[in-house]
Design a protein around this nucleic acid. Structure first.
Lengths: 362, 362
DNA sequence: CCGGTTCACTAAACCGGTTCAGGAGGAGGG
DNA sequence: CCCTCCTCCTGAACCGGTTTAGTGAACCGG
C-alpha cells in the first residue's frame, strides 16, 4: 500500500515517466487522448506528485523563511509579528509561496537557517553585530534584513527609528516630564542590551536628541533605562522594576505590547492613567487603540514593511545573482492618544480620548 | 561559482560521497582524522548539505502545515491564530519541526494541501462538511483536525463549544437580557453560514439551550443572528448591521476580536458600556482583558489546543500507519468581566472591573 | 519521390543527498 | 598460519520527480 510513484502511473498508462510528468506540467506537449489516459491512471492509483521531489528538481522550495531571534512562543507574544505576517502574506500568498517561521534551534540561529527549507530569508531582530550573522549570510540564500544599519551589501528595510522617538521625547518634554523611564528590548529578562547599536541604540539616540540630552546623558531630563522581553508580562516586569526604584512620571517603551503591560500593571496597582503615569509605546499595533487610555505611540507601517520585505526578497530570489542591496527607510510618526498627559495633574486632553466606554461615574 | 555539492567535497578530501555524508550525520562510522579532513574540505568549499535533497532522501520534510480557510492576511487579523501558533510552536520548536501556514491557493484548499511541503496537517476552521475535505484527506498525510465533529476516523481536538455558549446565555438571561444579537463567523462578508453544523451550529445550540429556547427559536428571548468576518472590522460591521435594525441589549459574538470590534464601534457611536450594551466574546485572548470594559468571554485553552494538536500530529507522523483517531474535547468556561450588565441600567459589578485607569471624572 | 518540419513521445541524465551491501586490511584467537 | 571479527571506507542503488537530447512517424511543399 505504498504511495504510488510516477513510474507506477507510467506503467499503468503504458507511457514513459516523462509523459506522466508532461501530463501534469506541460499538457501542450501531449496528445489530448494520451493525457486523459495518464490522468485516469493517476486517479485510479491515487497518485499525487511528491512536492519535495518536485522541488528538488526545480531547485526551488517555494518557501521563504522569517528568521526570528526567539522561540515561536516568545515571538508571537508580540502582536507585531502577526501584523508583519499579514504584510508578508499579502505578497507571498499571491505568488503561491509559503512562509516558514525560523526560530533558533538549540539557541542557534545559524543552525536553524542551515536546515531551513527556503529560497530566501527575511531577518527580523538581528542586528549587524549578531555573532551568528556571518554564518547566516554564508548560507548562500538571498536575504532581506529588517531594521538593521550598516549592511551596505544587503537588502535592508528599515524605519526611521530616531525620528519616531525624537518626536515622542519632544512630546513628553513639552508635557513637562523630567523623569522618564525607558524600557528597552531584551531577548530574555537578564540579557544585556547594547545601548549604542541596533534598534535600541537608534531609538535611544532619538530619545536623547528629543530631550536635548548630550550623548552621555547630561541634560534637563533624567532618563532611567531598564530592559524587558517584548510581551505584556515584560511590560509588567518593567513596571515592577521602576516601582522598586521609585516611579518616573512617564515611561517610554519600545513596543506597544510592552507599553500595554506597563499600563495594566499600573492600573492593577491602583494608579490612574495618564494623570499619575504617562506611557508611550512603539509600533502602533491595532490593540494600541483598543486599550484604555488609548495608547500614545510611535507609528510604524508594519504591514507595509512586511509587503516590501517579501517583494524585495522574491525579486532577489528571481534575480540571477540574488543580490539586491537596496536600503529603504520607511517613515515613523508619533500618534498622540490618551496615555500621555502632564505629570501629576489632570489631563488637558479631551476626555473622549483618555478613556473608553463606561468611564462616567455612576 | 555554483554551490558546491557533496561530490565536490568528496573529491577534494579524496573520499567517497558516503564518507562525506557520514562526516555530517554519523561521525562514529569514521576515523577521527578522516572526519576532520572532510570537514576541512567542506569548510574550504563553503559546503552546506542541501536541506531539500536531504529531506527527499529521508522522506521527511520536518515541517507541518497549519491549514487555514482564509488568506494569511485575513486569518492573522484574529489574535486567536498567533495564540494557537504559540502552542503549536512549543511542541514543534522543541522537535526542530517548522510550521508552515497553508492558506488556500486561488481559493482552493485542496490545491494548497497538495503542494504543501509537509509531513502532516493541522486543520483549522474546516468542518466535516467542507466541499474539499475529501481531497484533503486523500493527500495521504496524517491529519489532526481542530473543532470538528463526526470524524470518527481522524484525530480531532475540539472544545466544548455548547457548554461555553450555554453558560454565556444563562449569564445574559440572568442579567435580564431578552433581546440578544448573535454574531456568527463568516469567511467573507456575504458568505452564508450553516446554522446547523460546525462551530456556529454547536455554539448556537448551546446558546438556545442556555436561553431556554426550542430548537426552532421559540422562547422567552429574542435571538437575532448576523454574521461577520472574524476581525475587529468585522465586529464593527456587525454592530452597524444591528444599528440599522435597532440595537439589542446584548451582543454575543463567536470571537473576542469581533466582540472588541463591536465594543469599539459602540463606543465610537457614543454609547456607554456595559450599561447601554452588553458584549460577550469567545476565546479569551489576551487582549480581552486589556480592553475597557474588560471583556466577558468564553474561555478556551487556545495554547493547550495548539500543543495538543502538534503533539498528536507528531505522534501520528511517527506512527507507521499515521492513524490516530483520538477525539479529545477540551473544556470551556465563562469568564465574567466588565462588559456585561443588566440592560438599560447601571452595572452592579464593581467599578474596577468595568473600566480601567483614568476613568474617574476630572 | 525527396528533404525538411512538426508532432508525440521516450531514454537517460540530472537535482543532491542517504543508505545498503560489501570489501580491504589489520587485530586477535586458536 | 589460518580463520574470524572489527574498523573504516566505497560503489551502486535509491528517494521521486524534471529536463535534455533525440527518435520515429506523419505531414507538407515542391
Amino acid at each position: 500500500m505504498a504511495r504510488p510513484r510516477i513510474g507506477d502511473v507510467a506503467q499503468r498508462a503504458g507511457v514513459s515517466k516523462t509523459a506522466v510528468s508532461f501530463a501534469f506540467n506541460q499538457p501542450e506537449h501531449l496528445n489530448v487522448d494520451t493525457r486523459q489516459r495518464i490522468l485516469a491512471a493517476a486517479n485510479d492509483l491515487g497518485y499525487r506528485p511528491s512536492p519535495i521531489a518536485r522541488r528538488l528538481a526545480a531547485r526551488r522550495t517555494q518557501q521563504v523563511g522569517l528568521v526570528v531571534p526567539q522561540s515561536t512562543h516568545d515571538i508571537f507574544a508580540n502582536p507585531f509579528l502577526p501584523e508583519l505576517m499579514r504584510g508578508i502574506g499579502d505578497v507571498c500568498d499571491a505568488q503561491g509561496i509559503a512562509v516558514v517561521i525560523v526560530p533558533p534551534v538549540h539557541g542557534s540561529i545559524a543552525t536553524a537557517v542551515e536546515g531551513a527549507l527556503v529560497d530566501g530569508l527575511i531577518l527580523l531582530g538581528l542586528s549587524a553585530e549578531h555573532p551568528e550573522i556571518d554564518q547566516v549570510r554564508r548560507a548562500g540564500l538571498p536575504i532581506v534584513a529588517l531594521d538593521v544599519e550598516g549592511w551596505e551589501d544587503a537588502a535592508v528595510i528599515a524605519i526611521d527609528d530616531a525620528s519616531g522617538t525624537r518626536a515622542a521625547a519632544k512630546h513628553l518634554a513639552e508635557l513637562g516630564h523630567r523623569d522618564v523611564g525607558v524600557v528597552l528590548i531584551a531577548a530574555h529578562p537578564d540579557s544585556p542590551v547594547d545601548e549604542q547599536h541596533g534598534i535600541s541604540g537608534r531609538r535611544l539616540a532619538g530619545l536623547r536628541e528629543g530631550f536635548g540630552l548630550s550623548s552621555n546623558g547630561e541634560g534637563p531630563v533624567r532618563l532611567r533605562i531598564v530592559s524587558a522581553p517584548v510581551s505584556e508580562e515584560g511590560g509588567r516586569a518593567a513596571f515592577d522594576a521602576f516601582v522598586e526604584a521609585g516611579l518616573p512620571s512617564a515611561i517610554m517603551t519600545m513596543s506597544d505590547v510592552t507599553a500595554i503591560g506597563v499600563m495594566n500593571a499600573a492600573i492593577d496597582a491602583g494608579m490612574h492613567l495618564p494623570e499619575e503615569l504617562s506611557v508611550v509605546g512603539f509600533d502602533d499595533i491595532e490593540a494600541a487603540s483598543w486599550v484604555s487610555p488609548r495608547l500614545t505611540t510611535v507609528h510604524q507601517p508594519i504591514r507595509e514593511k512586511g509587503r516590501l520585505a517579501a517583494t524585495r526578497l522574491i525579486d532577489a530570489i528571481g534575480a540571477a545573482d540574488g543580490r539586491a542591496a537596496t536600503h529603504e527607510v520607511l517613515p515613523t510618526r508619533l500618534v498622540v492618544r490618551g496615555s500621555t498627559a502632564p505629570p501629576n495633574t489632570t489631563s488637558v486632553l479631551p476626555a473622549a480620548d483618555r478613556s473608553r466606554g463606561g468611564a462616567a461615574a455612576p
